[in-house]
Computed example of a mutant assay.
Amino acid sequence: MEFKTIIIEQQPMFVIDDAVTEKEVHDFYNLVSGLSFTRTERDNHGDAHCIFNAEFIPEKVETSLRIGIVARQLLQKFCAKREYILQRSYINMSHYGDMAYPHRDCSLNGKDMTVLYYVNKDWDYRWGGETIFYENHESQNIVMPKPGRFLIFPGFIEHKGAVPTRECVSSRFTFAFKYREKE
Rank of each mutant, 00 (worst) to 15 (best):
A48E: 06
S36V: 13
F28N: 11
Q76T: 08
V70M: 10
L116M: 09
Y101R: 10
V115N: 02
Y125I: 12
S171D: 15
A19D: 12
V169C: 05
N30E: 09
E22S: 12
G68Y: 13
G161L: 08
D98N: 12
Y90S: 08
R82C: 06
Y125F: 02
V15F: 09
R39P: 04
A54Q: 08
P102H: 03
Q11M: 15
E167R: 14
R72F: 03
V115L: 02
I51A: 09
E41F: 05
I6A: 02
I16L: 14
K77F: 01
I8M: 06
N109F: 03
N109E: 15
A54P: 00
S94L: 04
Y101I: 04
G97H: 03
T165F: 02
L35E: 07
N136P: 01
C79H: 08
P164W: 06
C79T: 05
Q73T: 15
H45E: 13
V115F: 07
V25K: 15
I51G: 06
W123K: 01
D98G: 06
G97M: 12
Q10A: 11
A71E: 01
I57D: 10
G161N: 08
C79E: 14
T21I: 04
T21N: 04
Q73W: 02
H45C: 01
V115W: 07
T165N: 07
T63L: 11
I91Q: 03
K182D: 13
A100N: 09
S64L: 08
E130T: 02
E167I: 00
R42N: 11
K121V: 06
S94G: 07
P164L: 02
M144V: 06
F3M: 04
H103T: 11
L86G: 10
N44S: 11
D105A: 10
P58I: 01
I51Q: 10
S171K: 14
F177Q: 04
I142Q: 05
E158A: 14
Y29T: 14
F28L: 04
R104C: 14
P164N: 05
G161A: 13
N109H: 04
V70I: 15
I152G: 03
V61K: 10
F150P: 09
W123Y: 01
F52S: 11
L65P: 01
M144I: 01
G97A: 06
M144H: 09
L35G: 10
V32R: 07
V115E: 08
N136I: 02
N30F: 11
A54G: 00
Y117W: 00
R104D: 05
K23T: 12
P154C: 11
K23I: 05
Y118E: 08
T21G: 11
R166H: 12
H103K: 11
F14M: 04
A100I: 01
E181W: 10
H45Q: 08
D105I: 05
E2Q: 11
F156R: 15
N120D: 12
I16D: 03
F133E: 00
N120I: 03
F56S: 01
I7H: 04
Y117Q: 02
R39I: 05
Q73M: 09
H103C: 03
F133I: 01
S33F: 06
I132R: 07
S171H: 15
N44I: 06
Q73I: 03
E183A: 14
R82K: 15
